[in-house]
Structures are given as C-alpha cells and as structure tokens.
C-alpha cells in the first residue's frame, strides 16, 4: 500500500503587485517585448497589442510611453499563486491542456486551467506563477488542493 506522502508541490498565494493592462497600437521603439509569451522587465506580452505589466516599475513604464495607449489598473482583478516543486507540471496537468513542459523558463502565456482563464509565468523549471481572476481563484485553489492530495496518494 502506498502511504500518503509529500505531494512534491506547494501552492502559495502572493500579495498582489501593481498590475496594469497595457494596450498599445504600435510598440515599435518601446521597452516592450513583441513576441507573444515573452517577458521583458515588468512586461509580459499577452497579445499583439496587449501587455500585462507587473510590479513597481509598471507605472513608470506607462508614464514613459507616447500615446495613444490604454493603461487600466487591474491590481485587484486577480489573485496570483506561486506553484513550486518537482511535481508542479503534474499539478498543472490536472487542468491545463497546454504542453507546459515545453514552455521555456522566463516565458508566460494566457491559457486555461479547468474552466478558468489564467496567466502562467514559468519562473524556473519547477516554479510557476499562476494569475487568475479573483472570483475564480477559490475554484482553482480547491482543485489544486484535491490534486495535491491525489499526487500525495501516489497513484
């Protein structure tokens, strides 16, 4: 019989950083990555004209941009979890249909986990940040708890 063991992954809610959704028609010459999924500084490129800016540098980046653009603060819109440990890919595979093993460290993506839209950032081989709209967070968290028990059960 397999005893219940350490699931090999932890889930931690992080304090909310400043988050800004930035939309710019033409990012040429701006300090913004242009490949979808790429991260430069505080900016993650989510779409051809969309960036998620996170952290203290976000406001300064926006202030330095020539118009026109749209910057909307969404710091409170979502919750971020830090997922860390050798079993992190198994944990995410319980609900995310993407092949995350092939996601490079230092990249990100908007995708889904179960029925919730999420933004994933791979910080290290065994460490991801997952950002999800506030009201979907308890559902995602509940699924993580179930999945962690499942992984710990060892079957």
């Amino acid at each position: 019989m397999t005893a219940t063991t350490d699931p090999g992954v932890t889930v931690t809610e992080l304090p909310p950083p400043t988050r800004i959704t930035l939309r710019v028609a033409d990012p040429t010459g701006q300090p913004l990555p242009t490949r979808i999924g790429a991260i430069e500084g505080c900016a993650l490129c989510l779409g051809p004209d969309e960036w998620l800016l996170e952290g203290d540098a976000a406001a300064d980046l926006v202030a330095g941009l020539p118009g026109p653009y749209s910057a909307v603060e969404v710091s409170d819109r979502e919750i971020t979890y830090l997922l860390e440990g050798p079993a992190v890919l198994d944990l995410l595979a319980t609900g995310c249909p993407r092949d995350l093993a092939s996601m490079p460290v230092g990249a990100g993506a908007r995708t889904v986990y179960d029925t919730a839209q999420v933004v994933l950032v791979r910080e290290a081989n065994d460490r991801f940040r997952l950002t999800v709209w506030r009201s979907f967070a308890p559902h995602v968290r509940a699924l993580f708890d179930i999945a962690m028990r499942e992984i710990a059960a060892g079957l």
């Binding site: 939309r23 028609a25 004209d49 819109r77 506030r134």
Partner: peptide, 12 residues
C-alpha cells in the same frame, strides 16, 4: 479605431 477594452468586473 484607437480604442481598447479591458474587463474591470473583478477590479472593483
């Protein structure tokens, strides 16, 4: 059009 949409349902 130079206009962008952002959902703020859960921001507020």
């Amino acid at each position: 059009l130079k206009v962008w949409l952002t959902s703020t349902t859960e921001q507020w």
